[in-house]
Nucleic acid binder design. Structure first.
Length: 444
RNA sequence: CGGGGUGUAGCGCAGUCUGGUAGCGCGCCUGCUUUGGGAGCAGGGGGUCGGAGGUUCGAAUCCUCUCGCCCCGACCA
């Protein structure tokens, strides 16, 4: 895109309501604008990042054997009365009445709906295992929304739900999601650490939170330092036994504040990392908590009706945008990891109107398109300083800087946002250097 | 939900105590000069001072009510 025709309302100063870095930068870089407390408009830059994150999540979910569906945002209260949560959930659930005075609600989560889909449509053990997911907006009427999109009331979430015939099979489904999550977050440039978690109101006996460390994290977390650099499992056969991978990741100590074992922490000594973390994913196994009361059953191979074991698996997609920025920024702005960046390359024309810079920029822009690297071309008639600071703020991973000075020597500059490192390169080699440094998926 | 703060132009703020009809910086528009890290000069547009009611000759300013937003805590993907 040409920057001159792209809607990126950047701000030089920080709106006073924004306290933490990610919130400030999301406003300043023109990703979002607040609509009401905890509710945001996503502008073009923010939307592109959201879509990139979704894409990674979707690919990894599909690889792990989950199938995408879309469930309604507005749900019938009746289902929640069946599961018993209509009264339990409290004022966090936004309740509305339709014109016939029926109890409806804006879904804060979808266990009830997916269980309803299951019981109405799945009859046989042959259809199991089944894992259905969606990437959709949810609403939880938080008492105190804060930190921008990190704790919004409306948020985009990937939620998957697994159905299995036995606990062992359910455990495998759980492990599949566990491994998929490690890969998913790694592709976004995050080292997420699985931590044993309290299942809370969703219930169940097996649960892990995926935490990314950041100063502004909402909860205190503790873990063995090895987990910070532990390599992510490469291509996995999701049908194989994944327990060794899960065991490997869960053998090192890691716990959130509530479950922190101080004695164990002491044992670790200097190996213990004490930090703050942001929860970006949460997986649960909760057995028959919903299938039982809602009467979801399938015929077993022996012809008996059996109640499936279930799990649910969430990723906070919109929260991830904030979490990634918390983990990846400096004083000048955002530093997008390659795979989620709204554009891979920022092309800066330092002297718009100069025939040489215009020509070279035009050619580079065309070639970037050809090789499939998304680029944002700053073709505005602004001063160099404005363009530099703006591009740093927006945080695209690479900048190609084209100015009359360099062109006299037949060169342009390639700048890596993360390191600030600049290379002066001949015009016709800049793209090959650039593509040579492109990561693939980050995983093989 | 307890405690604290705040609302004046797109953003950041002053003005409120002590009432006299709204101002500064940045951004925006025009022109000229500039042009490798948020330029200079000149001109211009933009505000029911969150809302309602009251006091007063007169209210951004005083009084009452109300709404929004932010922060700390408790709670939570």
């Amino acid at each position: 895109m040409r920057l001159s025709r792209t809607f990126i309302p950047t701000l030089k100063e920080t709106p006073s309501e924004a306290q933490i870095a990610s919130h400030r930068l999301m406003l300043r870089a023109g990703l979002v604008r607040q609509h009401a407390a905890g509710i945001y408009n996503w502008l073009p830059m923010g939307t592109r990042v959201l879509r990139n994150i979704e894409k990674i999540v979707r690919e990894e979910q599909n690889d792990a054997g989950a199938q995408e569906i879309i469930m309604p945002t507005i749900q019938s209260g009746e289902l929640w009365k069946e599961s018993g949560r209509y009264d339990d959930y409290g004022p966090e659930m936004l309740r509305v009445k339709d014109r016939h005075d029926r109890d409806m609600l804006y879904g804060p989560t979808h266990e009830e709906v997916v269980t309803d889909i299951f019981r109405n449509n799945v009859r046989s053990y042959k259809d199991l295992p089944l894992n259905l997911y969606q990437i959709h907006w949810k609403f939880r009427d938080e008492v105190r929304p804060r930190f921008g999109v990190m704790r919004g009331r409306e948020f985009l979430m990937k939620d998957a739900y697994s159905f299995d015939l036995s606990y062992e099979a359910a455990r495998h489904s759980y492990n599949q999601m566990f491994v998929a999550y490690l890969r998913t977050f790694a592709r976004m440039g995050l080292q997420a650490i699985p931590m044993k978690a309290d299942p809370g109101p969703i219930g169940g006996d097996l649960s892990h939170e995926f935490i990314v460390l950041a100063e502004t994290g909402e909860s205190a977390v503790y873990c063995h330092k090895d987990l910070l650099s532990k390599p992510i499992p490469p291509v996995v056969d999701y049908a194989s036994n994944l327990q060794p991978i899960v065991d490997d990741w869960t053998s090192a100590y890691a716990a959130t504040d509530e479950l922190h074992d101080k004695a164990k922490g002491k044992e670790l000594g200097d190996d213990l990392i004490s930090a703050r973390g942001i929860e970006i994913g949460h997986i649960f196994h909760f057995g028959k908590k919903y299938s039982e009361p809602m009467g979801a059953q399938v015929a077993s191979s022996a012809g008996e009706m059996v109640t499936p074991f279930m799990g649910s698996y969430g990723i906070g997609v919109s929260r991830l945008v904030g979490a990634i920025i918390e983990a990846c920024h400096d004083d000048d702005g955002i530093i997008w990891p390659d795979m989620v960046a709204p554009y891979r390359v920022g092309l800066i024309n330092l002297k718009v109107g100069d025939p040489d810079t215009d020509k070279v920029c035009g050619e580079l822009y065309g070639k970037l398109k050809e090789i499939g690297l998304s680029a944002l071309y700053d073709d505005r008639a602004e001063r160099a300083g404005v363009k530099f600071s703006n591009m740093d703020l927006i945080g695209l991973p690479w900048q190609i800087i084209v100015g009359p000075k360099g062109l006299k020597e037949g060169t342009v500059e390639l700048k890596r946002r993360a390191t600030g490192e600049r290379q002066t390169l001949p015009i016709d080699s800049v793209l090959s250097v650039l593509t040579g440094s492109q990561p693939g998926t980050g995983l093989s």
